[in-house]
Design a protein around this nucleic acid. Structure first.
Lengths: 143, 143
DNA sequence: TTATAATTGAAAACTATTATCAATAAGGAC
DNA sequence: GTCCTTATTGATAATAGTTTTCAATTATAA
């Protein structure tokens, strides 16, 4: 299970397993949508009442350091986090429920290097994010 | 010239042409890299000494409203602005000098709708940004 | 030139994030 | 299990970025 595996990795890096960390990991490791620190805080408090917002910031920082989560930029804010994808993946985000799914773009790299060549750039990083409405939200809206 | 055209558009929408607005427009209409409010403020102050930071925020807001500029998300901040591109373009940004260039991805839409179909999403918006180093910065680094 | 209302810059308020610090508690040694 | 050390905590203060407030100014139409 992801939560356990993340806790093991924290431990393996010499970090102590505290109630605050367990509560934050439990939320972030299992979320399907990108969450900002305040959202994590509110969700994690139901597991561990005594949690402080500051500990959420600190735990997110460590999880990002260990590459278990990644920061996601959204139209309404740039501090949301999502479990990190394996390999190089792109994002599909539902504007209704916030659900985020990774996808792989076939042959995207080829396009990128073509563009890079044309403009005389060497590419180091890329962001590709699609925003839309998932089928459930579509249904909910029409039904 | 872009600056004049932007000022005309502000005027056409009933906004007064003040020194503060002229100074901000002059900077933002001619920039080749995405600038945040503070950067605009500092650059525009050399044109109009009395400028206040608050007026920069307010002017950027109006320019965005009129779709003359667009907000750009960068790894180190999400409040930079760039003149808006015609049509649907993507961004190529130099990590060295900050220069931003638009490009058109051929057949990108086809890929997006394929992905959308596969995941059951309907896409409303997309972000595609490539980060790298432009030829000038490459040269500067090696030379 | 004058009147008027939009706009301004300075200061205050607000929000999000980070640093400080004494109290707490995790986890290794025994 | 108990003790000890020190990482970690939550509360508070500090900081940074952005927005609101407001009296003074100024663009513009008459």
């Amino acid at each position: 299970m992801t939560t356990q595996s993340w806790l093991s990795q924290l431990k393996a890096h010499g970090y102590r397993l505290t109630n605050a960390r367990k509560a934050v990991v439990e939320i972030v490791a299992t979320t399907t949508s990108a969450l900002n620190p305040l959202q994590v805080y509110e969700a994690a408090k139901s597991t561990y009442q005594g949690l402080g917002l500051v500990s959420v910031y600190r735990t997110l920082e460590k999880l990002e350091e260990l590459e278990l989560i990644q920061r996601v930029h959204l139209p309404d804010g740039c501090n949301a986090y999502l479990p990190q994808a394996d390999g190089h993946q792109h994002l599909l985000i539902c504007e209704g429920c916030g659900k985020a799914e990774y996808f792989e773009g076939d042959n995207m790299e080829a396009l990128f290097s073509k563009v890079a060549g044309k403009h005389g750039f060497s590419i180091h990083e890329h962001w590709l994010q699609l925003f839309g409405v998932c089928s459930q939200c579509e249904l909910a809206a029409s039904g």
